[in-house]
Design a protein around this nucleic acid. Sequence first.
DNA 1: TGCCATGTTGCAGCATGTGCAACGCGGGTT
DNA 2: AACCCGCGTTGCACATGCTGCAACATGGCA
Lengths: 249, 249
Amino acid sequence: MSQTVTRALRILAQLGEGERSLDQLAEVLGVHKTTVLRLLQSLEEERFVYRDAAYRYHLGAGLFALSGLALEQRGIRRIAAPHLAELNAATGQTVHLAAYEGGEVVYIDKFDSRHPVRMYSRIGLRAALHSAAVSKVLLADLPLPERRRVVAGIDFTPHTERTLTTPEALLAELEKVGAQGWAQDHAEHESFINCVAAPVRDASGRVVAAASISVPDVVLPYEQVLDLLPQLLATARAVSADCGRPDHR
Amino acid sequence: MSQTVTRALRILAQLGEGERSLDQLAEVLGVHKTTVLRLLQSLEEERFVYRDAAYRYHLGAGLFALSGLALEQRGIRRIAAPHLAELNAATGQTVHLAAYEGGEVVYIDKFDSRHPVRMYSRIGLRAALHSAAVSKVLLADLPLPERRRVVAGIDFTPHTERTLTTPEALLAELEKVGAQGWAQDHAEHESFINCVAAPVRDASGRVVAAASISVPDVVLPYEQVLDLLPQLLATARAVSADCGRPDHR
DNA sequence: TGCCATGTTGCAGCATGTGCAACGCGGGTT
DNA sequence: AACCCGCGTTGCACATGCTGCAACATGGCA
């Protein structure tokens, strides 16, 4: 493990919270400012950071460019986008796309319910493994050994009074989700939000992503969110078809 | 300058072109695979990369998350988004938002003309300093010494037969742009694309960003692109107003 | 004009990154 | 089924290059 790289990434994390001066960064990292300066010079050269006229460091455009490339590489994202946009337009609700990646579930796209303003806010963030509907869909498809391993590693912090709090309860829920072909989050993560999620499968039948609809209960009560399920399943099926999945059920 | 960090960033750049194995990365970087492994371990810890079940490395979600933070930090982006979306909807054309950053001009947002599919492709990329309309707008507002310095450093590669190819020609053009309050790119970067751009100013009157409309001439001939100018200027003025600029012309 | 805060440079010491070689492991082949 | 081969991982010794110090620029402010 590289101390130097770790420090450089900590710098980026700091800048993610706002602009910083050289001295500020040196203090936070607990190293000499000379050290920080040289790390920053390397980061600046690749445009991961830049500094303004006032010598304040900011995250730079190289980061955006790389992130854009990374998102484009997720073929599923491009394939799913038109279908998710349609679902978003038809229901007016927030639509997410999530993928399983190295023991975590990560949001890789979002279509907000409101104006055409694009929200990057949640893309890249982790979904809670024991409460998010997308997580249930993705975990349910893992081979049993890995599923057990991942579940065993979960921190079952309760977010609401409905949050599942034991590995056993989650494993049972995952069985059910796998069997019925969709998942819900009935106020398990946020007390005022309900979600439904459905799997996207590739030609081999493996689940490669999960699509979900999230609705605050002030907009629609729980039962009416379930009414959106057919549209969600149709969307997920359409995306799966575009991924080469044969159209059986 | 840190060799280690530079290598780590080169790894990320490689992964930006597609998934890579450990050996592939070692060969490209010209270092021992042990070295690459440890850099990757640090990157993986911060979720900048992850590796799939086949031990292939990919860019990871930590990158998306950081990029999202970085874009949100550009307050101008959030302020401009609704106005640009409106312009995009009204004209049906591609709309860009660009900012000046450390001697470069970078696209920080894009609203594509076509389907609701979102294109990240150009966000984060550099605009050509001597041909893009947004560059002209942003450079025109720089203090003269810095403007001269930046212009002197430009590589005047001609992209089309209309590209400006000398510092003198560009400086003259920038004077004109500054005076008239908008810029055009009349097939100077791509022979079949015309653009117009307008400045966004903050309360102090400094140009903080540039908005532009780009149109392939198969969609609209040059003259009709100029017809879009009033709408563009109105949009830029509205964004400026939201940035606190007093509403004088 | 002089002071203070902040970024930059030269240098010596040694921590840390590096490459080598040996090992483990899984997939494909005969 | 046994073997081999390719690829990722580990332990270790060496020296590279990272680190922190101290002295030096620079620019803003009183």
